[in-house]
Protein backbone atom coordinates (compact mmCIF):
# COMPACT_ATOMS: atom_id res chain seq x y z
CA UNK A 1 0.00 0.00 0.00
CA UNK A 2 1.35 3.35 -0.95
CA UNK A 3 -1.10 5.17 1.28
CA UNK A 4 -0.45 6.71 4.67
CA UNK A 5 -4.11 6.42 5.65
CA UNK A 6 -7.22 4.57 4.50
CA UNK A 7 -9.95 7.18 4.36
CA UNK A 8 -12.21 6.35 1.45
CA UNK A 9 -12.81 3.64 -1.10
CA UNK A 10 -11.80 6.14 -3.77
CA UNK A 11 -8.19 5.60 -2.73
CA UNK A 12 -8.28 1.87 -3.39
CA UNK A 13 -6.92 0.86 -6.78
CA UNK A 14 -7.26 -2.68 -8.01
CA UNK A 15 -3.60 -3.26 -7.08
CA UNK A 16 -4.22 -1.98 -3.53
CA UNK A 17 -7.21 -4.29 -3.12
CA UNK A 18 -5.32 -7.28 -4.43
CA UNK A 19 -2.40 -6.55 -2.14
CA UNK A 20 -4.61 -6.40 0.96
CA UNK A 21 -6.64 -9.46 -0.03
CA UNK A 22 -3.52 -11.51 -0.79
CA UNK A 23 -2.04 -10.55 2.54
CA UNK A 24 -5.35 -11.45 4.21
CA UNK A 25 -5.26 -14.87 2.56
CA UNK A 26 -1.72 -15.36 3.95
CA UNK A 27 -2.97 -14.37 7.39
CA UNK A 28 -5.93 -16.76 7.17
CA UNK A 29 -3.71 -19.62 6.00
CA UNK A 30 -1.09 -19.19 8.72
CA UNK A 31 -2.16 -16.83 11.50
CA UNK A 32 0.75 -17.92 13.70
CA UNK A 33 3.21 -16.37 11.24
CA UNK A 34 1.77 -12.94 12.04
CA UNK A 35 1.53 -13.42 15.80
CA UNK A 36 4.43 -11.15 16.72
CA UNK A 37 4.46 -8.88 13.71
CA UNK A 38 3.56 -5.73 15.59
CA UNK A 39 4.49 -6.58 19.18
CA UNK A 40 4.79 -3.46 21.29
CA UNK A 41 2.63 -1.33 19.03
CA UNK A 42 -0.59 0.33 20.06
CA UNK A 43 -3.69 1.06 18.00
CA UNK A 44 -6.11 3.74 19.21
CA UNK A 45 -9.80 2.92 18.81
CA UNK A 46 -11.82 6.13 18.53
CA UNK A 47 -15.46 5.25 18.06
CA UNK A 48 -17.79 8.24 18.28
CA UNK A 49 -20.70 5.99 17.31
CA UNK A 50 -21.71 2.58 18.60
CA UNK A 51 -20.04 -0.39 16.93
CA UNK A 52 -19.79 -4.06 17.71
CA UNK A 53 -18.30 -5.89 14.76
CA UNK A 54 -15.98 -3.23 13.40
CA UNK A 55 -14.57 -2.25 16.76
CA UNK A 56 -14.15 -5.78 18.09
CA UNK A 57 -12.59 -7.03 14.87
CA UNK A 58 -10.04 -4.18 14.84
CA UNK A 59 -9.32 -4.95 18.49
CA UNK A 60 -8.91 -8.66 17.73
CA UNK A 61 -6.84 -7.95 14.62
CA UNK A 62 -4.33 -5.72 16.43
CA UNK A 63 -3.99 -8.18 19.30
CA UNK A 64 -3.51 -11.11 16.91
CA UNK A 65 -0.66 -9.14 15.34
CA UNK A 66 1.01 -9.04 18.75
CA UNK A 67 0.07 -5.42 19.43
CA UNK A 68 -2.48 -3.91 21.75
CA UNK A 69 -5.23 -1.30 21.66
CA UNK A 70 -6.18 1.78 23.63
CA UNK A 71 -9.85 2.64 23.55
CA UNK A 72 -11.24 6.17 23.75
CA UNK A 73 -14.38 4.73 25.29
CA UNK A 74 -17.81 6.13 24.74
CA UNK A 75 -18.37 9.74 23.75
CA UNK A 76 -20.30 10.29 26.97
CA UNK A 77 -17.22 9.53 29.04
CA UNK A 78 -14.70 11.45 26.90
CA UNK A 79 -13.54 15.03 26.52
CA UNK A 80 -15.69 15.29 23.39
CA UNK A 81 -18.54 15.75 25.81
CA UNK A 82 -16.80 18.94 26.95
CA UNK A 83 -16.90 20.32 23.42
CA UNK A 84 -13.45 19.35 22.17
CA UNK A 85 -13.08 19.40 18.40
CA UNK A 86 -12.32 16.18 16.53
CA UNK A 87 -9.13 17.79 15.24
CA UNK A 88 -7.86 18.35 18.78
CA UNK A 89 -8.96 14.89 19.92
CA UNK A 90 -7.00 13.07 17.21
CA UNK A 91 -3.97 15.31 17.64
CA UNK A 92 -3.80 14.29 21.28
CA UNK A 93 -4.51 10.62 20.66
CA UNK A 94 -1.83 10.23 17.99
CA UNK A 95 0.69 10.81 20.74
CA UNK A 96 -0.58 7.71 22.52
CA UNK A 97 -0.59 5.21 19.66
CA UNK A 98 1.02 4.03 16.42
CA UNK A 99 -2.23 4.17 14.47
CA UNK A 100 -5.78 5.46 14.84
CA UNK A 101 -9.07 3.83 13.86
CA UNK A 102 -11.88 6.37 13.66
CA UNK A 103 -15.63 6.04 13.44
CA UNK A 104 -17.60 9.27 13.49
CA UNK A 105 -21.19 10.31 12.73
CA UNK A 106 -20.19 13.14 10.33
CA UNK A 107 -19.41 12.55 6.67
CA UNK A 108 -15.82 13.45 5.84
CA UNK A 109 -14.64 13.14 9.45
CA UNK A 110 -11.78 10.77 8.67
CA UNK A 111 -10.59 12.87 5.74
CA UNK A 112 -10.47 15.92 7.97
CA UNK A 113 -8.91 14.11 10.93
CA UNK A 114 -6.11 12.77 8.72
CA UNK A 115 -5.05 16.35 8.02
CA UNK A 116 -4.06 16.64 11.66
CA UNK A 117 -2.15 13.41 12.31
CA UNK A 118 1.01 11.74 11.04
CA UNK A 119 0.31 8.19 12.22
CA UNK A 120 -1.82 5.97 9.92
CA UNK A 121 -5.53 6.70 10.28
CA UNK A 122 -8.22 4.29 9.18
CA UNK A 123 -11.81 5.30 8.47
CA UNK A 124 -14.09 2.82 10.23
CA UNK A 125 -17.24 4.58 9.02
CA UNK A 126 -18.09 8.28 8.63
CA UNK A 127 -21.82 8.99 8.84
CA UNK A 128 -23.51 8.05 5.57
CA UNK A 129 -20.18 8.42 3.78
CA UNK A 130 -17.66 5.63 3.50
CA UNK A 131 -16.67 2.38 5.18
CA UNK A 132 -13.64 1.19 3.22
CA UNK A 133 -12.50 -1.61 5.55
CA UNK A 134 -15.96 -3.19 5.31
CA UNK A 135 -15.47 -3.09 1.55
CA UNK A 136 -12.16 -4.91 1.81
CA UNK A 137 -13.74 -7.73 3.79
CA UNK A 138 -16.71 -7.79 1.42
CA UNK A 139 -14.36 -8.14 -1.53
CA UNK A 140 -12.39 -10.83 0.26
CA UNK A 141 -15.64 -12.76 0.76
CA UNK A 142 -16.66 -12.33 -2.87
CA UNK A 143 -13.22 -13.42 -4.03
CA UNK A 144 -13.44 -16.55 -1.88
CA UNK A 145 -16.88 -17.51 -3.13
CA UNK A 146 -17.25 -16.32 -6.71
CA UNK A 147 -14.16 -14.41 -7.73
CA UNK A 148 -13.93 -10.72 -8.49
CA UNK A 149 -14.14 -10.80 -12.26
CA UNK A 150 -17.07 -11.49 -14.53
CA UNK A 151 -19.26 -10.68 -11.57
CA UNK A 152 -22.92 -9.72 -11.56
CA UNK A 153 -23.83 -8.23 -8.21
CA UNK A 154 -27.11 -6.89 -6.90
CA UNK A 155 -27.02 -4.42 -4.02
CA UNK A 156 -30.35 -4.02 -2.27
CA UNK A 157 -31.86 -1.91 0.51
CA UNK A 158 -30.86 1.50 1.81
CA UNK A 159 -28.50 2.71 -0.89
CA UNK A 160 -28.81 6.36 0.05
CA UNK A 161 -27.47 6.22 3.58
CA UNK A 162 -25.67 2.87 3.45
CA UNK A 163 -21.99 3.70 3.64
CA UNK A 164 -20.97 0.09 3.00
CA UNK A 165 -22.78 0.32 -0.34
CA UNK A 166 -21.07 3.59 -1.29
CA UNK A 167 -17.61 2.15 -0.67
CA UNK A 168 -18.29 -1.22 -2.27
CA UNK A 169 -19.79 0.17 -5.47
CA UNK A 170 -16.87 2.59 -5.87
CA UNK A 171 -14.19 -0.08 -5.58
CA UNK A 172 -16.06 -2.54 -7.81
CA UNK A 173 -15.56 -0.13 -10.71
CA UNK A 174 -11.96 -1.38 -10.74
CA UNK A 175 -13.18 -4.89 -11.53
CA UNK A 176 -15.18 -6.53 -14.30
CA UNK A 177 -18.45 -6.20 -12.42
CA UNK A 178 -22.01 -5.47 -13.53
CA UNK A 179 -23.72 -3.66 -10.68
CA UNK A 180 -27.49 -3.68 -10.13
CA UNK A 181 -28.95 -1.42 -7.45
CA UNK A 182 -32.33 -2.36 -6.02
CA UNK A 183 -34.08 0.09 -3.72
CA UNK A 184 -37.19 2.17 -3.19
CA UNK A 185 -37.08 5.43 -5.14
CA UNK A 186 -36.52 7.44 -1.94
CA UNK A 187 -33.40 5.46 -1.01
CA UNK A 188 -31.56 5.50 -4.36
CA UNK A 189 -27.82 5.95 -4.48
CA UNK A 190 -26.83 9.54 -3.72
CA UNK A 191 -25.89 11.82 -6.59
CA UNK A 192 -22.19 11.85 -5.67
CA UNK A 193 -21.94 8.05 -5.85
CA UNK A 194 -23.86 7.87 -9.13
CA UNK A 195 -21.53 10.54 -10.50
CA UNK A 196 -18.48 8.45 -9.58
CA UNK A 197 -19.92 5.31 -11.13
CA UNK A 198 -20.73 7.20 -14.31
CA UNK A 199 -17.27 8.80 -14.43
CA UNK A 200 -15.66 5.39 -13.97
CA UNK A 201 -17.69 4.00 -16.88
CA UNK A 202 -19.22 1.35 -14.61
CA UNK A 203 -21.92 -1.00 -15.85
CA UNK A 204 -24.79 0.06 -13.62
CA UNK A 205 -28.55 -0.42 -13.59
CA UNK A 206 -31.08 0.71 -11.01
CA UNK A 207 -34.27 -1.19 -10.14
CA UNK A 208 -37.11 -0.95 -7.69
CA UNK A 209 -37.94 -4.66 -7.90
CA UNK A 210 -35.54 -7.50 -7.06
CA UNK A 211 -37.44 -9.97 -9.27
CA UNK A 212 -36.31 -8.09 -12.36
CA UNK A 213 -32.73 -9.05 -11.83
CA UNK A 214 -32.42 -11.83 -9.23
CA UNK A 215 -31.97 -14.73 -11.71
CA UNK A 216 -28.87 -13.04 -13.20
CA UNK A 217 -27.04 -12.42 -9.95
CA UNK A 218 -23.88 -14.09 -8.68
CA UNK A 219 -23.96 -12.07 -5.46
CA UNK A 220 -26.85 -10.40 -3.64
CA UNK A 221 -25.67 -7.83 -1.11
CA UNK A 222 -28.52 -6.96 1.25
CA UNK A 223 -28.52 -3.93 3.54
CA UNK A 224 -30.87 -2.84 6.27
CA UNK A 225 -33.57 -0.26 5.63
CA UNK A 226 -33.58 1.85 8.75
CA UNK A 227 -36.83 2.77 10.40
CA UNK A 228 -35.63 6.29 11.19
CA UNK A 229 -35.35 7.12 7.47
CA UNK A 230 -39.14 7.16 7.21
CA UNK A 231 -41.31 9.78 8.86
CA UNK A 232 -44.28 7.43 8.75
CA UNK A 233 -44.24 4.03 10.46
CA UNK A 234 -46.71 2.47 7.99
CA UNK A 235 -44.67 3.60 5.03
CA UNK A 236 -41.58 2.05 6.59
CA UNK A 237 -43.30 -1.31 7.01
CA UNK A 238 -44.65 -1.24 3.46
CA UNK A 239 -41.29 -0.39 1.92
CA UNK A 240 -39.17 -2.64 4.14
CA UNK A 241 -41.47 -5.56 3.38
CA UNK A 242 -40.72 -5.27 -0.33
CA UNK A 243 -36.98 -5.63 0.23
CA UNK A 244 -36.96 -8.70 2.45
CA UNK A 245 -35.75 -12.07 1.27
CA UNK A 246 -36.63 -15.58 2.38
CA UNK A 247 -36.16 -19.10 1.04
CA UNK A 248 -39.06 -18.67 -1.35
CA UNK A 249 -37.58 -15.49 -2.84
CA UNK A 250 -34.34 -17.31 -3.51
CA UNK A 251 -36.00 -20.08 -5.52
CA UNK A 252 -35.64 -17.82 -8.55
CA UNK A 253 -31.90 -17.36 -7.95
CA UNK A 254 -28.92 -19.24 -9.35
CA UNK A 255 -27.94 -22.27 -7.26
CA UNK A 256 -24.60 -20.73 -6.44
CA UNK A 257 -25.88 -17.25 -5.57
CA UNK A 258 -23.96 -15.78 -2.63
CA UNK A 259 -26.07 -13.75 -0.19
CA UNK A 260 -24.12 -11.16 1.81
CA UNK A 261 -25.04 -8.58 4.44
CA UNK A 262 -22.77 -6.21 6.39
CA UNK A 263 -24.86 -6.93 9.54
CA UNK A 264 -26.58 -6.21 11.80
CA UNK A 265 -29.72 -7.45 10.12
CA UNK A 266 -33.17 -6.93 11.54
CA UNK A 267 -35.61 -8.87 9.43
CA UNK A 268 -34.48 -8.22 5.84
CA UNK A 269 -33.10 -11.76 5.59
CA UNK A 270 -35.35 -14.44 7.05
CA UNK A 271 -33.50 -16.78 9.47
CA UNK A 272 -34.41 -19.76 7.24
CA UNK A 273 -31.92 -18.41 4.66
CA UNK A 274 -29.11 -18.95 7.19
CA UNK A 275 -29.32 -22.70 6.63
CA UNK A 276 -29.01 -22.48 2.84
CA UNK A 277 -25.77 -22.64 0.84
CA UNK A 278 -26.45 -19.08 -0.26
CA UNK A 279 -25.81 -17.53 3.15
CA UNK A 280 -22.31 -16.14 3.59
CA UNK A 281 -22.91 -13.20 5.93
CA UNK A 282 -21.51 -14.75 9.07
CA UNK A 283 -18.42 -15.91 7.21
CA UNK A 284 -18.24 -12.38 5.79
CA UNK A 285 -18.22 -10.93 9.32
CA UNK A 286 -15.54 -13.40 10.44
CA UNK A 287 -13.36 -12.32 7.50
CA UNK A 288 -13.14 -8.92 9.20
CA UNK A 289 -10.29 -10.12 11.38
CA UNK A 290 -7.82 -11.46 8.78
CA UNK A 291 -8.62 -8.59 6.42
CA UNK A 292 -8.09 -5.94 9.10
CA UNK A 293 -4.94 -7.74 10.23
CA UNK A 294 -3.66 -7.53 6.67
CA UNK A 295 -4.56 -3.85 6.36
CA UNK A 296 -2.98 -2.92 9.69
CA UNK A 297 0.09 -4.98 8.83
CA UNK A 298 0.54 -3.09 5.57
CA UNK A 299 -0.13 0.36 7.04
CA UNK A 300 2.03 -0.15 10.13
CA UNK A 301 4.96 -1.66 8.22
CA UNK A 302 4.91 1.43 5.96
CA UNK A 303 5.59 3.54 9.03
CA UNK A 304 8.60 1.45 10.13
Amino acid sequence: MRHDHLLSAHQLSRADVEEVLSRAAEVAADPAAFRDRHAGKLLALCFFEPSTRTKMSFDAAMKRLGGDTVDMGSVESSSVKKGESLADTVRVIEGYADGVVLRHPSEGAATMAAEFVDVPLVNAGDGAGQHPTQTLLDLYTIRETHGLDDLTIGVMGDLKYGRTVHSLSTVLTNFDARQHFISPESLRLPRGVRFDLHEAGAQVREHTDLDEVLPELDVLYVTRIQRERFPDENEYHTVAGQYRIDAETLEAAKDDLTVMHPLPRVDEIAPEVDDTDHARYFEQAHNGVPVRMALLDLLLEEGE
Binding site: G83, S85, L86, A87, H104, P105, S106, E107, G108, A109, T111, M112, D126, G127, A128
Partner: peptide, 9 residues
Protein backbone atom coordinates in the same frame (compact mmCIF):
# COMPACT_ATOMS: atom_id res chain seq x y z
CA UNK B 1 -23.90 16.41 8.42
CA UNK B 2 -20.61 17.17 6.66
CA UNK B 3 -17.64 17.59 9.00
CA UNK B 4 -16.86 20.94 7.33
CA UNK B 5 -20.06 22.27 8.93
CA UNK B 6 -19.02 21.14 12.40
CA UNK B 7 -17.00 23.33 14.72
CA UNK B 8 -13.65 22.17 13.36
CA UNK B 9 -10.58 24.27 12.45
Amino acid sequence: NCISNANEP
